[in-house]
Design a protein around this nucleic acid. Structure first.
Lengths: 217, 217
DNA sequence: AGACTGCTGTTACCGCTAGTAACACGCCGG
DNA sequence: CCGGCGTGTTACTAGCGGTAACAGCAGTCT
């Protein structure tokens, strides 16, 4: 029967794909985001063209690889965001979830934060200089998700949609940059960092007093 | 005289270096951050080994190139940060300065935001997985500068130093992420974006009301 | 049976990259 | 005249992403 054959083939292909992704995961965790296709193929016990048949090109493989981790991280953040508690506690829980994730597996974090890798190869001169677009896809998705939650739960008045998206991306960027710096220098505990960031979001920048010996304003 | 000769040589070398940097600048502006050493050498009218004698390797050239732009951007931000006005206006002016800069020259912005390019070449397997460290140097410098200004002008109570650095890097990350997203989608005017971000920093997240039809909290 | 199709896998290659070794010219002080 | 020094070149290596061309093995159709 043809359909059965097709299904078996399809199942086998999907299974193969999963195996390849797991092998790629191991190599990326070991060698960092610049792991070569050759190394990944060797880890999977095969050769390069098979990888290319499955994923098209390197960025295809990396996108598939990133999607798994991104989905997992976003699910964790969603559950923190949906916890039954007041807003301050939910914000702190979300920050802590993100920071705990990057603390637990910095290599995965580093891989996820790499931007789209551009065109990589050397053929097309990529004539059209596309604007900005430096951030990693995971940050975009987190920003959009947070914007959705903000717009859904909070009354921001007119222009609420755009305002929510600004805040979503801004807060995600704040979390990311502070987390990246903290991960490199470890200047304080995770709890302290969470509290400091939540304080910042809670308007302490407005409330704190000027220093009396400051430069006059 | 030997010293005269030496000085002339030195002056000439410095001038040459500046010429090379300007050529590299043109190529990076045209081809993006993945501009090749060959292309840069051709633009400068010379060949590769000279570039390598001047800058060591690609990341050396890129660091020298980035330093110029970073210094210029930081100087502009400093003057906005030092303007004689109240704190809210200074914050808005600083945000607007940054956003205007990335809006005016997105290619430069994109180049600056590229992280350290790792080891690039293929020699060392980079066995020791260094932690995080994804952010571009310009973001680190901006974060540290802002932290310095905050710690100097604002009274944050105990642990003020660490707190100021958290806020510095966090605010810079917020500005960067929101700016990157805005530059790609242009969902609103620059003034609107500045106001939205300043509002966020000014504690509106605390003040806004829950939506009455929200999921119950 | 035999030809055909589709999938998996290989080897061998292309053009590109970063980076380097080795050699050639000019200019200056001894 | 000659040995150093700085400037420049050509020609090369090793590795990368990506691909063409081919080999073997299933199952299907005539």
């Amino acid at each position: 029967m043809e359909t059965t054959h097709r299904n078996e083939q399809q199942r086998s292909a999907d299974q193969r794909r999963r195996e390849l992704l797991e092998a790629a995961d191991r190599v990326v965790l070991r060698d960092g985001p610049q792991a070569s296709m050759n190394a990944i193929a060797a880890e999977a016990g095969i050769t390069k063209p098979i990888l290319y048949r499955h994923f098209g090109d390197k960025s295809g493989l990396y996108r598939a690889l990133a999607k798994r981790h991104t989905d997992a991280l976003l699910a964790a953040l969603q559950s923190a965001l949906d916890a039954p508690a007041d807003r301050r506690r939910r914000v702190e829980a979300t920050l802590d979830t993100y920071l705990a994730a990057i603390e637990a597996r910095p290599q995965v974090y580093r891989f996820l934060m790499h931007p789209s890798e551009d065109t990589g190869g050397g053929q097309q001169p990529e004539q059209g200089f596309d604007t900005g677009r430096h951030s990693a896809p995971v940050l975009r998705r987190m920003g959009e998700e947070l914007a959705r939650v903000i717009a859904q739960r909070v009354d921001l008045g007119p222009n609420s949609e755009v305002l929510a998206r600004v805040w979503g991306h801004g807060i995600v960027g704040m979390m990311h940059a502070a987390g990246d710096w903290w991960l490199g220098e470890r200047p304080c505990s995770r709890e302290d960092l969470v509290r400091a960031l939540a304080d910042l979001l809670w308007g302490r920048l407005e409330q704190v007093d000027d220093k009396v010996d400051g430069p006059g304003f």
